[in-house]
Nucleic acid binder design. Structure first.
Lengths: 292, 292
DNA sequence: CCAAGAATGTGCGTGAGTGAACATTAGCCC
DNA sequence: GGGCTAATGTTCACTCACGCACATTCTTGG
């Protein structure tokens, strides 16, 4: 029973009762049908049909095969329907991953998406570790930094996150306002642990001020924001968060190198599915608001 | 979902997780496996697997296919086992046909066979009409007369039925014993309706005596025997029955032309099955006793 | 009774699918 | 870091299975 196509051929012969009818239904030549039946019977060592000039008559074995193959045919048809329908509907599990910094932005978007599609289950992973799309760990990833260029990954620009160098009112009261860029060396900063993040801002900061001036380091972006809020030092905060955080004063005009691009990354095998397209569209629509 | 072999290939890929493993399991080249997957995904319009250099990872659709195909594989394996086993075991329905005259001989043989094989269902058709083996109307037929020479039918000799010209005691008391063959024209005979049976004995009888001397005609062999028993006339009775019927006297020595051969006929497609072979063996063994 | 139609069965030439070889890449062990 | 293994993926030559044509047989309808 190695060749499933031969079983399918035998199935149609048993259903139609004739080789010619089965051949027409299968879209092949009737000689092919005869060969399939002969091969299958030779493998099984049992005649599946009694041949007579008016058609093929299924034996007991043939009738048994008919029943089993009928069930298989039904199940395959249902399977094909499910798979094709699944490709056109937004349902099943959807795994999205991003850095933790994006959680407060992305979560509401995914929650909205889930509300719109009843059959959808969202799994939102935010970890500093890079989930690998090609291993099926996630369907969609939000990545920051330079353009990801892994093979088999589809990359789309999501947004430009402009950041601003800010300090809290309490910090300014204590240490004063820096007069200009050169004066920054006399101040204290909140930074990201360099072993974790290699954001462009970090490189800039390390060039401008000595390492000992970065007096507060964390590997969590939210913790960094909190530190800036509470006056632990001067820090870089993206426009989006700045709008939600009162009492922060911009120190110097934003520099272009603080502009961190972010990307929507999907695996090429999943990129065309309606489900993935839906979440991509939702995230891109939301990104317009974030940038405004 | 036209090509079941491609489904089978995808099934093995989903099971193994690698194209190479699936190719080895299937006994084909891995290039073939890749082509099958590509073709199937193109047909469905949905990716079944995420490709990465260490193997193939099934998507939701691929996992769905895996489940369905696993069930199919199991069912096909069971089917193959049933069919192969069925070919080696004596079970299921067995249809035997013969002339009504053989009923009293064949019935006990078939009953014995059924007792030996629990899973066997016997269907014994005895009708004057010829059942057609090539239409699956019967598995085994007992035929009399000249060698049946229909194509696709396997013919084996069963026995030679020697018949004897006999009369009952009551007939002899009424009409006397024929002195010799020439005296037969002065007697009365029980014959078979010529439109039904063309047994050799009939031709001989028609030649020897005028038609009006055949005063009892029937289309049923058993009825003929009964008629002879009750003195309706002189008739031809086979050795087998003669032994079971007391009070019959042989009129003249048996002639060779009264020797009717009988044959076991099966369709070539069913002849090699163990079931058919079992009934053939049983009938041939019984025939030895009948002739003794 | 003959002819038309529909079915199985068979030999032969061709094309699609197969297999071999090679390139490439990721992970692992030393 | 560097070789090694085991995967995927692509190209090319080839073979096996397919389609075609014809023969044959049985049934049916006029």
């Amino acid at each position: 029973m190695e060749n499933w196509d031969e079983v399918r051929t035998a199935f149609h012969v048993a259903r139609m009762g004739t080789v010619s009818g089965a051949a027409e239904a299968l879209g092949v030549h009737h000689a092919t049908v005869i060969r399939h039946i002969d091969a299958l019977e030779a493998q099984l060592g049992v005649k599946l049909f009694q041949r007579h000039p008016r058609g093929y008559n299924a034996t007991e074995a043939g009738l048994d095969l008919l029943q089993v193959a009928q069930a298989t045919d039904d199940q395959f048809a249902q399977l094909a329907g499910r798979i094709k329908g699944q490709g056109e509907s937004v349902s099943g599990e959807l795994v999205v991953t991003s850095l933790g910094a994006f959680a407060s932005l992305i979560t509401p978007v995914l929650a909205d998406l889930q509300k719109k599609h009843a059959g959808l289950t969202i799994k939102y992973l935010n970890s500093e570790r890079l989930f690998r799309l090609e291993y099926g760990e996630a369907h969609v990833a939000v990545r920051t930094g330079p353009v990801p260029e892994q093979p088999d990954n589809v990359v789309q620009p999501l947004m430009q996150m402009q950041s601003h160098l800010v300090a809290s009112q309490s910090y300014i009261e204590r240490h004063g306002m820096p007069k200009d860029t050169d004066d920054l060396v006399n101040h204290y900063f909140v930074g990201v642990d360099p072993t974790v993040s290699r954001a462009p801002f970090n490189s800039w900061l390390e060039k401008i001020v000595p390492s000992e001036r970065i007096t507060f380091r964390t590997d969590d972006t939210n913790a960094m924001f909190e530190a800036v809020m509470h006056g632990a030092g001067i820090g870089l905060v993206a426009t989006t968060w700045l709008k939600k955080m009162p009492g922060l004063t911009e120190i110097i005009p934003p520099k272009l190198e603080w502009c961190i691009p972010s990307w929507l990354v999907t695996h090429v095998d999943l990129h065309r599915t309606t489900k993935v397209q839906a979440v991509l569209a939702a995230l891109k629509a939301a990104a317009v608001d974030w940038q405004a």
